[in-house]
């Protein structure tokens, strides 16, 4: 009885030792040398794996960061300056200040502004609706309202407003990862420079039709009149395909264009109420 137990222990011991020796040599032979900083950087990153940096996940981004020689074009939009500062410390480099950005919805096609011409009954997905037809309004560029962007947001920074039928971006929670920008089949959402107090001036329209049809489809469409381009003292506004675009990096938030716009397509958000001319109503919804 006892000899069986002893024999078993001895055999297992010898086997274990042999396996250990083999494993030791195998480990020596096939050792992968990895930069220890990758782990450190990976820990410093938020770990959301949102892909906002342009890489498949935080680990892939950490590897890229360690391999890179400068921070040019590399930024974690989620962690922002804090995280990049920590990464810079680990990698012993100077951090590069990247201006924070925020997602902005460039459509104001609420049922009040853009009359509904049809009822969409298909799968609840903007991608599907977009592949089928122009949409429930006369505007073939605007928001379809199925909420693909909301589904894509990993930071709980968006929700669908049942009244306006448009998604709402919560500025405080938005980290500008760009997931919603990619999810939107109509390229309505844009990442713009985040200004002080979350102030914004932007053209809330992506309709590239000529003035007449655009206005017919939606009361607050950009009709491409070009008044804003003329009035802008900083050359921040460009006009392409009957659609004005305000460069958020050139814009100095003077608000001259807002007063000039005949359809109210340019929104100003986060500003105090004007003395001489009250701000356009019904904008808070698209905030």
């Amino acid at each position: 009885m006892s000899s069986t137990v002893l024999f078993t222990i001895a055999m297992l011991g010898i086997l274990g030792f042999l396996a250990a020796v083999i494993l030791y040599f195998v480990a020596q032979k096939f050792r992968v040398v990895e930069d220890p900083r990758i782990d450190l950087v990976n820990e410093a990153l938020p770990g959301a794996n949102c892909g906002g940096c342009g890489y498949t996940g935080c680990r892939a981004f950490a590897e890229t960061l360690v391999k890179s020689t400068s921070f040019d074009g590399l930024n974690c939009p989620v962690g922002g300056a804090d995280t990049m500062g920590k990464v810079a410390l680990i990698l012993d480099r100077q951090p590069v200040a990247v201006e924070p950005r925020v997602a902005v919805l460039r459509c104001n096609g609420t049922p009040a502004n853009a009359a509904r011409t049809s009822y969409y009954d298909g799968a609840v997905s903007c991608r599907v609706a977009h592949s089928l037809y122009g949409g429930t309004t006369g505007c073939h560029y605007g928001c379809l309202g199925c909420g693909d962007c909301v589904d894509a947001c990993k930071f709980d920074a968006m929700y669908m407003d049942p009244v306006t039928e448009l998604p709402v971006i919560i500025d405080d929670k938005c980290v500008a990862c760009g997931a919603c920008v990619k999810a939107c089949p109509r390229n309505i959402i844009e990442l713009r420079k985040r200004n002080k107090k979350d102030r914004k001036i932007y053209v809330s329209c992506v309709n590239k039709d000529k003035g007449g049809p655009a206005r017919k489809a939606c009361k607050v469409a950009c009709i491409g009149c070009g008044k804003c381009v003329k009035v802008c003292p900083y050359e921040a506004i460009t006009m392409e395909n009957n659609l004005a675009f305000i460069d958020s990096y050139k814009c100095k938030l003077c608000r001259k264009c807002v007063a000039e716009c005949p359809t109210g397509a340019i929104l100003e958000i986060g500003f105090p109420v004007r003395e001489e001319r009250p701000a356009q109503p019904a904008e808070a919804a698209t905030n």
């Binding site: 298909g122 799968a123 997905s125 991608r127 599907v128 592949s131 089928l132």
Partner: peptide, 12 residues
């Protein structure tokens, strides 16, 4: 289920 809606999207 809207099977065909998604299949069409995937196919294209």
């Amino acid at each position: 289920r809207p099977l065909l809606d998604y299949i069409r999207l995937g196919k294209s």
